[in-house]
Amino acid sequence: MMVLKISLVIATVALLLSACSSDADEPQLTQSNPTTQAQQTQTESATAYVAGQSESVQDERESEPPAQASPAEQAEQTTAEASEAQPDAVAQAQQQAAAPESAQPQQAEQEQPSTDDEPEPQAMVGQIIESGHRAGLIANRHVVGDPDAPIVITEYSDFL
């Protein structure tokens, strides 16, 4: 976040300097730097998110959705906050460089679903009970049988 802010400050200064300059090409090069850094930050966040998701899925397949979504959302929020905090000049610079930039966030987004390629965690859904009087029945933790069965028999009980 600090890197991003520093980059934005540098970008602002560079843009102001460039506005005073007669050379039209140079500001674009300078302007692209903070944007690239911002994208790198976002990409790193996305990568960390993928790694974190992988671990959380393996630990608990019923893990809470916010845990999976929040890092990505944080990354998006970070980008959004950066955009809001940027001076207009920097925002304009980003718009000028929008064409090459637009591809990279998409790449980051495309990297996230790569967890689909990873081996699935040990599935507890639809596990067949191997022994006892329920042998052969499909169970998902405390639920036995077809999840789409029209009748649900619920037992509330205590082990003692």
Binding site: H133, R134, G136, L137, H142, V143, V144, G145, D146, P147, A149, P150, I151, V152, I153, T154, E155, Y156, S157, D158, F159, L160
Partner: peptide, 23 residues
């Protein structure tokens, strides 16, 4: 279990603690 096995019903066990900490 036979009713469940037939696909007519599913069975859900839910904890309902009335016997304290051990339970």
């Amino acid at each position: 279990e036979e009713v469940v096995r037939s696909g007519l019903a599913r069975y859900e066990y839910r904890h309902f603690i009335i016997f304290g900490a051990a339970s």
